[in-house]
């Protein structure tokens, strides 16, 4: 059974974090653009970008968590993830978005839009999946 203990927040969403793209270029997390993800995935031999559309957002098991249901890729596979409300996702053409942008900004100093049903997020799958 899964634990509902608090999940450690990844450090790389903090404003100013240095991110290395697949071609070696370094960018701050807040400066990333949709093309950076697309171009990095094009270079990658293992990963490919998929579009994941937000289908539902429900309350999670603990008050700071949400369960987000995505429709992934052309197959529209249904995938659910439980994350903290401040967890940011990158929305195509829009940038960082979370279920609670105020909290994301407060914790990470990362400017965020509100993640909504219908938003299309950048996600990854394995190229070798057949």
């Amino acid at each position: 059974s899964s634990s509902s203990s608090p999940v450690a927040l990844p450090p790389f969403f903090m404003r100013g974090s240095i991110i290395q793209l697949a071609d070696g270029e370094l960018k701050r997390v807040e400066d990333l653009k949709t093309e950076d993800f697309i171009q990095s995935a094009e270079i990658s031999s293992e990963l490919k970008i998929d579009s994941s559309t937000v289908e539902r957002i429900d309350s999670g098991q603990n008050p700071n968590a949400v369960v987000i249901q995505f429709s992934v890729g052309e197959l529209k596979a249904q995938v659910c993830v439980e994350v903290l409300v401040e967890y940011p996702f990158f929305v195509f053409g829009q940038g960082w978005s979370s279920c609670c942008p105020d909290r994301t900004t407060q914790l990470f100093e990362l400017s965020c839009a509100k993640l909504c049903v219908g938003d299309v997020c950048v996600s990854l799958t394995l190229r070798s999946l057949r």
Partner: peptide, 25 residues
């Protein structure tokens, strides 16, 4: 004596959720 450490650099893919679609074949 604390040596100055370089700033951590994170790979781009760590920022992206890995959502493997269910294969329906």
């Amino acid at each position: 004596n604390v040596e100055p450490r370089s700033v951590p650099v994170f790979p781009w893919h760590s920022l992206v959720p890995f959502l493997a679609p269910t294969q329906s074949d």
